[in-house]
Computed example of a mutant assay.
Amino acid sequence: MERSRIAVAGASGLIGSALVRSLVSDGHEVVRLVRRAARGGDEVCWDPERQYVDAAGLAGCDAVVNLAGAGVGDHRWTEAYKKTMRDGRVLGTAALAEAVASLDTPPRVFVCGSAIGFYGDTGDGEVDESAPPGDGFLPELCVAWEEAAAAAQEAGIRTVFARTGLVVARRGGAWGRLFPLFKAGLGGRLGDGRQYWSFVALHDEVAALRHLVDTESLSGPVNLTAPQPVTNREITAVMGRVLHRPTPFAVPAPVLRVVLGEMAGDVLGSARVVPKRLLESGFSFAFPGIEDAVRAAL
C-alpha cells in the first residue's frame, strides 16, 4: 500500500488501537475520530449518538474505517445497554456514511465494522457470507448496523462490512476475560461445549482489515474469522494445554442464563462461520488454528 491518509473511528478500542499501531508503523497517516474537540490535524471531532461528524476533517482521506461501538460483552444486556450498543453503531455509522458521501473528493473505501452475530445460532453447519441473518438481538443489530452505511454506498464509495468473529487477544474482547480464568485454574467449557466459536487472532484481524482497505475487488460483507472454527470444548482443551492448567469446571447452561441473562443465548449458541470471500481474495492467515492464535496472544 502506498502511503495513505486513513481515518479510524474506535481507535482506542482493542482492534482499533492495534490497527492504528500497524498503520503508523508502516508510515501511513492516521486520523483518529475523538469525542471531544480535535487537538490537531490528526484528530476529527465526532459524536456518534448525536450523529455529528466534522466532515471537513475527513477531507483528503483515502479510507475511513469505522470500528466504534460499545462492547457486546462488557455489560449485562439491560434495555438501556442494548440501546447504547445500538445507538453507537447505527447512528455513528449513519453519521460517518453521510459525512464521507458529502465530501467533494470522498475516500475510495469505507470499511464498516460488523460482526458474525449477523448469522445468529447456525448450529453445526458452516455458513459463509451468502447466509441470511439470524433471529434475535445481535442479528437485528448487525442488520441495522450495515444498513446504516447506505449513504456511502449510494454515493458510489466502495463499502465493506467486516463481520468479525471472536478476537483472540491477551487483553480485551472475549479472550481478555477467558485468560485470567484459565490462568487461575478456573476455566472450563460453557454449557455442553459443543457450540462452535468462530475466532480470529488479533494479528490476523488487523491484517484482514488492511486487506479490505487495499483490495479493490472487495465490497459488501466479508467474514473476518479464522478458516477453522472450533467448538467451545476444543477451545477449553487448548487453553488448558497452552496454559498448563487443569480445566475441570463446566458452567451449566442454566447458570449461564442466570448470570448473563439474554447474552447467554449467544454464548451457548453455535456459529460455524468461514471466511470464504477473504480466502478467495487471496488473504493468507498467519494464525489459522486455535492453538496458533492462543499462543500468539500470549
Results as ranks from 00 to 15, higher is better:
Trp46Thr: 01
Trp46Phe: 06
Trp46Leu: 02
Trp46Asn: 07
Pro48Thr: 11
Glu49Phe: 00
Arg50Ala: 15
Arg50Pro: 08
Gln51Glu: 15
Gln51Pro: 00
Tyr52Thr: 13
Tyr52Phe: 14
Val53Glu: 02
Ala55Phe: 02
Ala56Met: 05
Gly57Thr: 12
Gly57Phe: 12
Leu58Phe: 06
Leu58Met: 10
Leu58Asp: 03
Ala59Met: 03
Ala59Gln: 11
Gly60Thr: 02
Cys61Ala: 08
Cys61Met: 02
Asp62Lys: 02
Ala63Pro: 02
Ala63Glu: 01
Leu67Cys: 03
Ala68Asn: 12
Gly71Pro: 07
Gly71Leu: 11
Val72Tyr: 02
Val72Leu: 15
Asp74Asn: 13
Asp74Pro: 08
His75Pro: 00
Trp77Ser: 06
Glu79Tyr: 09
Glu79Ser: 15
Glu79Val: 14
Glu79Thr: 14
Lys82Asn: 06
Lys82Glu: 06
Lys83Leu: 10
Thr84Gln: 14
Met85Glu: 00
Met85Leu: 15
Arg86Asp: 01
Arg86Ile: 04
Asp87Trp: 05
Asp87Pro: 00
Arg89Cys: 10
Arg89Leu: 12
Val90Phe: 07
Val90Met: 10
Leu91Ser: 15
Leu91Gly: 00
Gly92Trp: 06
Gly92Ser: 09
Ala95Glu: 10
Leu96Ala: 06
Leu96Asn: 12
Ala97His: 01
Glu98Gly: 15
Glu98Trp: 03
Glu98His: 12
Val100Met: 07
Ser102Cys: 10
Asp104Met: 08
Asp104Ala: 15
Asp104Arg: 14
Thr105Glu: 02
Pro107Phe: 00
Arg108Ser: 09
Val109Arg: 05
Val109Cys: 14
Phe110Val: 09
Phe110Ala: 05
Phe110His: 08
Val111Ser: 06
Val111Tyr: 11
Cys112Phe: 00
Cys112Leu: 01
Ala115Glu: 03
Ile116Met: 09
Ile116Pro: 04
Gly117Ala: 08
Gly117His: 08
Gly117Leu: 01
Asp121Cys: 10
Thr122Arg: 15
Thr122Pro: 05
Thr122Asp: 00
Gly123Thr: 10
Gly123His: 11
Gly123Gln: 11
Asp124Ile: 10
Gly125Lys: 14
Glu126His: 13
Val127Gln: 13
Val127Ser: 09
Asp128His: 06
Glu129Ala: 12
Glu129Ser: 13
Glu129Cys: 08
Pro132Ser: 08
Pro132Phe: 07
Pro133Leu: 11
Pro133Lys: 09
Gly134Cys: 02
Gly134Gln: 02
Asp135Asn: 10
Asp135His: 15
Gly136His: 08
Phe137Ala: 07
Cys142Thr: 12
Val143Glu: 02
Ala144Ile: 00
Ala144Gln: 13
Ala144Pro: 12
Trp145Glu: 04
Glu146Asn: 11
Glu146Lys: 00
Glu147Phe: 09
Glu147Thr: 05
Glu147Ile: 02
Glu147Gly: 07
Ala148Trp: 08
Ala149Asp: 12
Ala150Val: 03
Ala151Phe: 00
Ala151Pro: 12
Ala155Trp: 07
Ala155His: 06
Ile157Phe: 09
Val160His: 01
Val160Pro: 02
Phe161Leu: 00
Thr164Cys: 13
Gly165Thr: 06
Gly165Arg: 09
Leu166Met: 15
Val167Thr: 14
Ala169Met: 13
Ala169Lys: 04
Ala174Glu: 00
Ala174Pro: 04
Arg177Trp: 13
Leu178Gln: 06
Leu178Pro: 07
Phe179His: 06
Phe179Gln: 05
Leu181Asn: 04
